[in-house]
């Protein structure tokens, strides 16, 4: 592994090693035309490890999967799920699929934005929270749906926004105490 690359973008070496091990475990044949098929799962893993996919990580993936950097960047830019900028520690995702939208997801989103004083796509100044929108998570029966990190909240009303936020603000505070 090229250690210069890790230094260049200031991400921990261990994280690159973890990604390297993962890519290694896939046993990708760099001369096989089908190698691009691995790209999405590698990106998934990488975003899980790093939290986001900056250029340095993209180039690392390009080199190790054996595809041009432009392909990696192109795939990332296509999917909403992938992000090239760091997101908040707590990610709030509001579903704006048709069902959720009809059931008032727009208002729920506005309430989160008002509460956290950030807009959709932004990160709070302390880096703790970020808001994104999603397109249909397939849980239309629960519309409107909000996902916070990996937890799904259904039938969310604007009134519940404060309660949900309180859970995570408290959690943040407890973590801080432990440290």
């Amino acid at each position: 592994m090229d250690s210069n690359k890790t230094l260049e973008i200031g991400l921990p070496k261990e994280q690159f090693e973890e990604l390297d091990r993962y890519i290694g475990s896939l046993k990708i044949d760099k001369e096989d035309e089908r190698r691009t098929g691995y790209l999405i799962q590698v990106l998934h893993k990488a975003q899980h490890i790093f939290g986001y996919l900056p250029v340095g990580v993209q180039k690392f993936i390009a080199e190790n999967v054996g595809v041009p950097h432009s392909d990696v960047s192109g795939v990332i830019s296509f999917y909403n799920y992938f992000t090239t900028v760091p997101r908040g520690k707590t990610r709030i995702s509001v579903c704006m699929g048709t069902a959720c939208f009809v059931k008032g997801a727009g208002k729920v989103l506005s309430e989160f934005e008002r509460y956290l004083k950030i807009k959709n796509g932004e990160v709070s100044e302390d880096g703790k929270f970020s808001i994104d929108i999603l397109r249909c998570v397939g849980a239309c029966g629960l519309a409107p749906v909000v996902i916070v990190n990996d937890k799904v909240y259904g039938n969310v009303t604007t009134k519940q926004v404060g309660d949900i936020m309180a859970l995570y603000i408290n959690e943040e505070a407890t973590h801080a105490d432990k440290k």
Binding site: V55, Q58, V67, S70, V72, S73, S77, F78, T84
Partner: peptide, 20 residues
């Protein structure tokens, strides 16, 4: 096989451009 130009983004905002 230089691989600089590729589709970036999607929908109306999609372009063919170098990475990022």
């Amino acid at each position: 096989t230089v691989g600089v130009l590729s589709g970036f983004g999607r929908g109306f905002k999609a372009v063919v451009a170098p990475p990022e």
